[in-house]
Design a binder for these strands. Structure first.
Length: 279
DNA sequence: AGCCAGGACAAGT
DNA sequence: ACTTGTCATGGC
């Protein structure tokens, strides 16, 4: 991995394959959008960025300081995804899924943003999830310029009432969001301390929250705490498991089951699995 | 128009 | 230990 400061952006090479499209559109995040010119634009950790590929290099707008403190970890650039995908089970379904989503990486999202986003995600579709989160950020996130908004801190949400959140149209999930924010703001749930726990203890702690079950907890663990062995199972994963005679679970995919899961989820959702996938 | 969506939860078998 | 109804809303 080699990063070079250019005029207003940082160019990165030597990270193996990287696909901005698959990374941003595989369903793990909800705040990045494709622009007409093919670049992606979004916000993370309170920073806005534009991301594009140029001569096989990953280009990220902003300073080298921002790259080092935020984007390098956010894009998981120090991990060898080519080596990891080679070690995943090589069954036919997995091979197709990896070929389809080649270059996707698991983003290191902030724990609170991941928790809140996946509370919203329950029994919901991705376009609408993006809409709700967008309205949440516009209404209560700090404006960081260019019409961009940071993800609101839990302390800000905690001070609100349910009616203050009616504008985001989150439906029955609103009290879950409020409750989680209040527990974090009050200190009764300490995300920094949770990050130091082993995965099982972390999972148990998250499951205490209202509106957080196994699926939301596992998404939070995977996308918000960087535990790449976490294995969220949603409706699409259940559909995909029908392609495995004995089904599958986290143990089927080893220490990077979360990455395997994301390939499978993305592939399954993209094709709907209504028809047999062609070679 | 109607089914479904990156579910959780309580209540009923 | 499984199945079912309910929750709020809109994408397709």
């Amino acid at each position: 991995m080699k990063a070079k400061a250019c005029d207003g952006y940082v160019a990165v090479e030597g990270i193996g394959f990287f696909s901005a499209r698959h990374t941003f559109e595989c369903g793990q995040c909800f705040r990045w959008n494709a622009r007409p010119d093919g670049a992606y634009e979004g916000v993370a950790y309170g920073r806005h960025a534009v991301v594009w590929m140029q001569e096989n290099k990953l280009c990220i707008s902003g300073s080298m300081a921002d790259f080092e403190t935020i984007w390098r970890a956010y894009f998981d650039l120090d991990r060898d995804y080519a080596a990891i995908t080679e070690k995943l089970p090589q069954d036919a379904f997995m091979q197709r899924a990896v070929a389809f989503g080649q270059g996707l990486r698991i983003l290191a999202q902030p724990p609170w943003e991941a928790l809140c986003s996946f509370i919203i995600s329950q029994c919901n579709n991705i376009p609408r999830i993006r809409g709700i989160i967008g309205r949440l950020c516009r209404a209560y996130g700090v404006e960081i310029g260019n019409g961009q908004y940071a993800f609101p801190d839990p302390e800000v949400i905690a001070a609100l009432q349910e009616r203050d959140l009616s504008c985001i149209q989150a439906g029955y999930r609103t009290p879950y969001i409020l409750n989680a924010a209040r527990r974090i703001a009050s200190g009764s749930l300490d995300l920094k301390a949770l990050a130091a726990l082993p995965t099982e203890a972390l999972r148990r702690a998250l499951l205490q929250l209202q509106g957080v079950g196994a699926k939301v907890a596992d998404c939070t663990i995977l996308f918000g705490f960087g535990r790449l062995d976490a294995f969220p199972v949603d409706t699409w994963m259940k559909k995909a498991s029908a392609f495995y005679p004995q089904g599958f679970n986290a143990d089927s995919f080893g220490p990077y089951a979360g990455i395997a899961q994301q390939y499978i989820f993305y592939y399954a959702r993209s094709f709907g699995l209504k028809e047999k996938v062609r070679e």
